[in-house]
Amino acid sequence: MKTLKTNWNTPRKTAVTAGVLYLLTFVSIPTISLYHALHQPDYILTPGSDTSAIIGGLLEIIVALSCVASAIALYPVLKKQNESLALALVASRVLEASTIFIAVAFILAAVSLHQQAAKQADPSSHTLIILYDRAFLLGQSFMPAINDALLGYLLYRSRLVPRTLSMIGIIGVFPLLAGYLAIVFGIVSRDSIWAGLSAILVALFELALGIYLIAKGFIKSSMK
């Protein structure tokens, strides 16, 4: 009985750890309002506090680290289904985290210009914010679609969680990619309601997955 208990404890702890990490990827939601001032055309030339922007950057760093950690936490379990795809998920999450770090670097560079020389700064420094928006689209619109396509497929095949949950992630990839392309080609704006709607299924999948893993763990019959 002791051996059985030990064998179950490890997958359970893995599930809870991965679930918590997936929920942590939602901590950057407030950046929508925290970065509001940065997107104003006269931000660099207007005196004011940069606290909200710095907090937003720190939240995004937490998200980036959680992205990598969640994939690493799931790797030992998912590799039993398909080691190559499980490794691809880790690589994809690392790439996503890298783009987030680059985006945060643009934000903090803009903050530094604002702090050091607001009155003398070149208005073209707002280009940093534009670069952030593009890095954000790549890291938090395009890459999540790749991540969830891999994760959804691996979870669907392994039956570690209910297949209905896995299908939400797989199906959600298509509207997210469509929304990303629509923004890139200028069909809709990044802050439009259509852009937000395109990400709903992927957000629902990751939120539900995090909650499920914490509350239920992996399906026991699939761990054999």
Score class of each variant (00 low, 15 high):
residue 3 T to Q: 15
residue 3 T to W: 12
residue 6 T to R: 15
residue 10 T to G: 12
residue 10 T to W: 13
residue 12 R to T: 09
residue 18 A to N: 03
residue 19 G to C: 03
residue 20 V to L: 11
residue 20 V to T: 04
residue 21 L to P: 00
residue 22 Y to P: 07
residue 23 L to N: 01
residue 24 L to R: 03
residue 25 T to I: 00
residue 28 S to V: 10
residue 31 T to N: 05
residue 35 Y to I: 06
residue 38 L to N: 01
residue 40 Q to L: 10
residue 46 T to K: 05
residue 48 G to T: 11
residue 49 S to A: 04
residue 52 S to K: 15
residue 55 I to V: 11
residue 55 I to E: 00
residue 59 L to Q: 07
residue 60 E to P: 12
residue 65 L to D: 07
residue 69 A to I: 02
residue 70 S to M: 07
residue 70 S to A: 10
residue 71 A to L: 02
residue 71 A to W: 05
residue 72 I to D: 09
residue 73 A to K: 01
residue 75 Y to N: 12
residue 77 V to F: 10
residue 79 K to E: 01
residue 80 K to W: 13
residue 81 Q to G: 12
residue 84 S to N: 14
residue 84 S to Q: 15
residue 85 L to K: 11
residue 89 L to T: 04
residue 91 A to E: 13
residue 95 L to V: 14
residue 97 A to I: 00
residue 99 T to E: 14
residue 102 I to D: 09
residue 105 A to P: 07
residue 109 A to D: 14
residue 111 V to A: 00
residue 112 S to E: 12
residue 112 S to R: 15
residue 112 S to N: 15
residue 117 A to K: 15
residue 120 Q to K: 11
residue 121 A to K: 07
residue 121 A to D: 08
residue 122 D to C: 08
residue 122 D to P: 07
residue 122 D to N: 08
residue 123 P to V: 01
residue 125 S to F: 12
residue 126 H to C: 10
residue 126 H to V: 11
residue 126 H to S: 10
residue 127 T to A: 14
residue 127 T to K: 14
residue 128 L to T: 02
residue 129 I to V: 06
residue 129 I to H: 02
residue 131 L to E: 08
residue 132 Y to H: 05
residue 135 A to P: 08
residue 135 A to Q: 05
residue 136 F to E: 02
residue 137 L to S: 10
residue 140 Q to H: 12
residue 141 S to N: 14
residue 142 F to E: 00
residue 144 P to T: 01
residue 151 L to T: 02
residue 151 L to C: 04
residue 151 L to M: 09
residue 152 G to P: 02
residue 153 Y to H: 11
residue 154 L to Y: 04
residue 156 Y to P: 01
residue 156 Y to N: 03
residue 158 S to L: 05
residue 158 S to W: 10
residue 160 L to V: 13
residue 162 P to V: 05
residue 163 R to M: 14
residue 163 R to K: 04
residue 164 T to H: 11
residue 164 T to L: 13
residue 165 L to W: 06
residue 166 S to E: 08
residue 166 S to K: 06
residue 168 I to V: 05
residue 168 I to S: 04
residue 171 I to R: 09
residue 171 I to H: 07
residue 172 G to S: 04
residue 173 V to M: 06
residue 173 V to D: 07
residue 174 F to C: 05
residue 177 L to W: 08
residue 180 Y to R: 13
residue 184 V to T: 01
residue 184 V to Q: 08
residue 188 V to T: 12
residue 189 S to Y: 07
residue 190 R to G: 09
residue 190 R to L: 09
residue 190 R to F: 08
residue 191 D to F: 10
residue 191 D to S: 07
residue 192 S to P: 01
residue 195 A to P: 09
residue 197 L to T: 11
residue 200 I to P: 06
residue 201 L to W: 03
residue 205 F to K: 03
residue 207 L to I: 15
residue 210 G to V: 03
residue 210 G to Q: 02
residue 212 Y to M: 10
residue 213 L to F: 05
residue 214 I to E: 01
residue 215 A to W: 13
residue 215 A to S: 15
residue 216 K to A: 06
residue 219 I to V: 13
residue 219 I to C: 14
residue 221 S to M: 10
residue 222 S to F: 08
residue 222 S to N: 08
residue 222 S to E: 05
